[in-house]
């Protein structure tokens, strides 16, 4: 995983970080480096960099390594992304390939 310009923080599952109050926090559930999981991560990063650069955290959870976290969050497929902050939380399924739909679902339309 590469990081561009230090704007993006990708935390690993289980590591406890305390985000700044205006930070968007995502839990992205993936299955190893399966193609759809990889697509979802790439798309999410691209959308966040374009709209909330420097104000987001993506915690990726590999369900192959951490199935308990998946059960705990009722994740039944990968890729699944959960916006945990700000509340209310939102759960999205799939590769997030349509930025407009993702932005709307995440209440990010116009959040630039």
């Amino acid at each position: 995983m590469t990081t561009r310009g230090g704007k993006r923080r990708i935390a690993q599952a289980g590591r406890d970080t305390t985000p700044a109050p205006d930070t968007y926090v995502f839990q992205l559930f993936v299955a190893g480096d399966e193609p759809n999981s990889a697509l979802a991560l790439g798309n999410l990063v691209r959308i966040c960099d374009a709209h909330i650069a420097g104000r987001y955290e993506i915690h990726t959870v590999d369900v192959l390594k951490n199935a308990d976290a998946a059960y705990k969050h009722n994740v039944i497929v990968t890729p699944t992304v959960i916006l945990t902050r700000p509340l209310p939380s939102v759960t999205l399924f799939g590769t997030l390939r349509d930025p407009a739909q993702v932005l709307a679902a995440l209440r990010l339309t116009g959040a630039r």
Binding site: F29, A31, E34, P35, N36, S37, L39, V63, L64, A67, A70, Y71, V75, I76, V77, T78, P79, F93, G94, T95, R97
Partner: peptide, 14 residues
Amino acid sequence: LARALRTHEVDAIV
């Protein structure tokens, strides 16, 4: 969820 399954955007079922 249904859409993601239908469009083959899912790669694992937990």
